[in-house]
């Protein structure tokens, strides 16, 4: 992966200095082992900052979403996209919130990213200085030495089920295609479907009761791209500000419905949730239902493909109107 980081630095420096783009969005390393965060490098030389770009097992934040804020202010923006980020980009494109010609995409074949919570629960977090990826293995670096482990045991759940680790859209691909070996993604949905309505209600009530209403799930989502979110409009205030379960359920149901058919299953909502609400399970239930009702559809794969929920057909199954 080191190598890829070097390629990223070079390519960013080049496109900035040639004036091809006026902003490069990548990742930078923070002071702690799990911190790799979005970096914004501007100016025609990148102010010498392109050297700070990084690529490691923690470059999880989806950069596509930032186009919503940055693109209107810029001539042209370059960003690095993993498989899931590319899906998000396509969705933003399909929702007409970005212009393809104003964006340069550098594709990153992704072998999965490391979930810091899994490292902590395995008791490996104490004194950890760095985590390096070495093929199928991770190397945990401590003052006292190194320790190796199977990478797959520490990857985000969303990475274990990822079907598009190689970007579906890019201008230039950096590196060899990554292997595609997804686990079944609807397993937890099937578990939920086995519950009866009351159990399911209780399950989600318990999950949502932890919600602190920070709106991080919405703000991180590439499908939540409305210019003004209904939940932000002060008047009329559709969503009460009291942190009551009923209000939270209202919020979460509207959120899930509003991304239904547009959710690219990138898992950002679930990752950013500070109280572990498994939002991806809910989104996937929608995806599964849509697949069953309207035929297989993967949001974000092909922005030209007709999206099932926004396409009118006279023979629409319209199952939700059946009694």
């Amino acid at each position: 992966m080191k190598q890829l980081a070097e390629i990223m630095k070079d390519i960013a420096a080049q496109s900035l200095s040639r004036g091809e783009v006026d902003l490069v969005i990548g990742w930078q390393k923070g002071p702690l082992w799990w911190q790799s965060y979005p970096a914004f490098i501007e100016g025609n030389e990148g102010n010498g900052e392109t050297g700070s770009l990084t690529w490691d097992s923690f470059c999880v934040p989806n950069l596509s979403r930032y186009l919503l804020e940055e693109l209107p202010e810029r001539k042209k923006v370059a960003l690095f996209v993993k498989g899931c980020d590319a899906l998000g980009f396509n969705q933003i494109l399909q929702d007409k919130r970005a212009e393809r010609e104003k964006v340069v995409l550098y594709g990153i074949p992704c072998t999965g990213l490391v979930d810091p919570d899994k490292v902590e629960s395995a008791g490996l977090g104490r004194g950890l200085l760095e985590v390096k990826r070495d093929g199928d293995e991770l190397v945990f670096v401590y003052d006292s030495g190194e320790q190796k482990a199977q990478a797959r045991d520490f990857l985000y759940d969303k990475c274990l089920t990822c079907r598009y680790p190689n970007p579906v859209v890019y201008d230039q691909m950096l590196g060899e295609a990554a292997p595609v070996q997804p686990e079944e993604r609807f397993e937890s949905v099937q578990e939920l479907e086995k519950m009866d309505a009351d159990e399911r209600f209780a399950y989600w009530a318990r999950q949502f009761s932890r919600c602190i209403r920070c709106f991080a799930c919405r703000n991180a989502c590439p499908a939540c791209s409305c210019r003004e979110c209904i939940f932000d409009i002060p008047e009329p205030r559709w969503l009460g500000k009291a942190n009551e379960l009923s209000e939270t359920q209202f919020y979460q149901i509207i959120r899930a419905y509003h991304v239904a058919g547009r959710c690219v299953d990138c898992g950002e909502c679930t990752r950013v949730c500070p109280v572990n609400i498994p939002l991806q399970e809910l989104n996937r239930k929608f995806i599964k239902d849509i697949n069953e009702l309207y035929g297989e559809y993967d949001a974000g794969v092909d922005p030209e493909q007709e999206a099932p929920l926004v396409t009118y057909k006279t023979d629409d199954p319209a199952a939700f109107t059946e009694s």
Partner: peptide
């Protein structure tokens, strides 16, 4: 150098 990456969520202040 700080604000661009902020998602504008309420996590940091609520917690």
């Amino acid at each position: 150098q700080f604000f661009r990456r902020c998602l504008g969520c309420g996590i940091c202040t609520y917690i």
